[in-house]
């Protein structure tokens, strides 16, 4: 469903992705790991179309369509969801109204009617229970005054509600205590479906104790240094990342510390 060919991307003058080749089939879960600054978050954000990243080379196909030519909202309606590392606050924008607008935009794209408000509230409650989120949040402004854990649960709730074909989770595990981590992992596991694919971006192996990926890829200096199955994650936990650095040629340009 997702094919990435020789993808290069920069922030301003700084090159971050340097030729990524990568394929995800329907129903697969891929984990992308790597040290800080390796470009793993950039990769997820480039797929979602975050404007500060510039694609300088390469091609990305989603179900055969040219993903890079689509605006971020079109990508979302085509089924790409990014659970963000730092969800931004939207003052004055009610959480439930925001999510209804999002769901309706996606439904409209599929040629469906807007969801009835009562059906929506019921659906929101179900999905909220799934990630054990405080129901009071639904009446608050988007992400405003949410704790770190609540923001992450909220991202998973949104993913469950919008039912993407391709879910990108950008360090959703960072900053979570073990209970929250289990809940988040549980939420992700419930979404797994033969039609849907997941890409997990993570720095630590611990999330992979709860979500078992089909493939693990290690990103170093903007390239995939090694791919394997879930055992690779355990190997990384024991050996760190340095042993992989020697396997790719050294790079002379800045490696882009700003892009974790």
């Amino acid at each position: 469903m997702l094919e990435v060919h020789d993808l290069h991307a920069s922030v301003g003058e700084i090159k971050i992705l340097r030729g990524i080749n990568f394929t995800v089939k329907k129903g697969e879960t891929h984990a992308i790991m790597g040290p800080n600054g390796s470009g793993k978050s950039t990769f997820a954000n480039v797929l979602a179309g975050r404007p500060e990243y510039t694609v300088t080379k390469g091609e990305v196909l989603l179900d055969g369509k040219n993903l890079l030519s689509m605006e971020p909202d079109v990508r979302a309606r085509e089924g790409v969801f990014l659970a963000m590392q730092y969800p931004v606050e939207l003052p004055g924008v009610r959480y439930n109204q925001f999510l209804k607008a999002a769901l309706d935009a996606i439904r409209e794209h599929k040629g469906e009617d807007q969801i009835d408000i009562r059906a929506f509230n019921q659906l929101l409650k179900e999905k909220g229970d799934l990630v054990e989120i405080n129901p009071d949040l639904m009446r608050r402004n988007v992400n405003e005054g949410f704790s770190g854990g609540e923001k992450k649960r909220s991202e998973i709730l949104q993913m469950a509600l919008l039912e993407p074909h391709l879910a990108l989770l950008d360090e959703t595990d960072s900053g979570l205590d073990i209970d929250a981590l289990k809940t988040v992992a549980d939420g992700v596991n419930r979404l797994q479906d033969p039609e849907k694919s997941v890409i997990l971006v993570t720095h630590y192996q611990r999330l992979l104790n709860y979500i078992s990926p089909d493939f693990v890829h290690v990103l170093i200096d903007g390239k995939i240094a090694k791919s394997g199955d879930h055992k690779l994650a355990l190997e990384l936990e024991n050996k760190g990342y340095d042993w992989l650095r020697e396997t790719i040629p050294p790079v002379s340009e800045t490696s882009g510390e700003s892009a974790s």
């Binding site: 179309g49 975050r50 971020p72 979302a76 969801f81 990014l82 939207l90 999002a102 935009a105």
Partner: peptide, 9 residues
């Protein structure tokens, strides 16, 4: 970007 990433124009 946050809003657009959720499908809103």
């Amino acid at each position: 970007f946050y809003c657009m990433q959720r499908g809103v124009s």
